[in-house]
């Protein structure tokens, strides 16, 4: 399973609205700009947004693979040559909770695609639904996004606890998003680390932090990655540094 050379990284947060999709899109763009072949899978199968943030027009989605067995290679949408997107459906609640059989179909369908890419990023839905857990289990690496507020910390911690308890996952990258200051990011990571090491015996890896930046909201309205819309913005530079860190660890 997942025996190819692609790094398969799942991006989750537990809580919604912490910037998963925005960071997934920008991280994918940053890796692609560094010359890596990147596949971005919209893992929010029932309420997809990756296509919205990239301004893509999508006619066929992963629903066709799950329900009709359509080869996902036929669904790929090119953003630019190094970045391809596997889009998902929006407004299809049954896709949010895949059955074990559907999970098996999806996993088998995705396997042949993996060798074509250096990085496969999965932007999951919020929550702890079966699809979210399955994508996290399927991926080899897990990025958990946390923002400095009590609900985000609780939900990120709960997600990690479930992934450890049900799927024996023990290695997590933490990405702090939307911190007002470097100190706030440091404290957020330190708190998560303290609880994870004390209660779950997990030593998280600090992947980096993306600061609060008005450029993020402006780019969303333009339906472009902020990294491309305003390359010199603080958030853009932070994501570029995170991508460099991921490449350094490959």
């Amino acid at each position: 399973m997942n025996g190819g050379s692609a790094r398969i990284i799942c991006i989750s947060s537990g809580k919604g609205g912490v910037g998963k999709t925005s960071l997934s899109v920008n991280l994918a763009a940053a890796l692609a700009r560094k010359g890596r072949k990147v596949l971005l899978i919209d893992g929010d199968l029932g309420l997809a947004n990756v296509d919205v943030l990239l301004g893509l027009t999508v006619s066929r989605t992963l629903r066709r693979t799950i329900e009709e067995g359509l080869d996902p290679a036929a669904l790929l949408v090119e953003v630019f040559p190094e970045l391809q997107v596997l889009p998902a459906s929006s407004g299809v609640p049954e896709m949010a909770s895949l059955s074990a059989q559907e999970q098996a179909v999806l996993g088998a369908a995705l396997e042949p695609l993996l060798d074509r890419f250096d990085f496969v990023l999965v932007d999951t839905a919020a929550g702890l639904g079966e699809s979210v857990l399955w994508f996290n289990d399927w991926a080899r690496e897990n990025i958990v996004i946390v923002s400095p507020d009590p609900t985000s910390l609780t939900d990120a911690y709960a997600l990690i606890k479930v992934l450890r308890g049900r799927y024996a996952k023990e290695r997590f990258h933490l990405l702090i998003n939307n911190a007002k200051t470097r100190r706030e990011a440091d404290e957020t990571f330190a708190t998560m680390r303290s609880v994870l090491t004390r209660f779950l015996k997990i030593e998280p890896h600090r992947l980096g932090e993306v600061p609060q930046d008005a450029a993020v909201a402006r780019a969303v309205r333009l339906q472009k990655p902020f990294l491309l819309a305003e390359p010199e913005c603080r958030a853009g530079k932070a994501v570029a540094a995170i991508a460099a860190g991921l490449l350094g660890g490959s």
């Binding site: 479930v162 049900r166 404290e187 209660f199």
Partner: peptide
Amino acid sequence: SRAESSCQVSVEERTELFSIF
């Protein structure tokens, strides 16, 4: 118990998570 009970975030865990706030 692993899937349903032990994954519940405990009061102690929450207390420590909220310590910065």
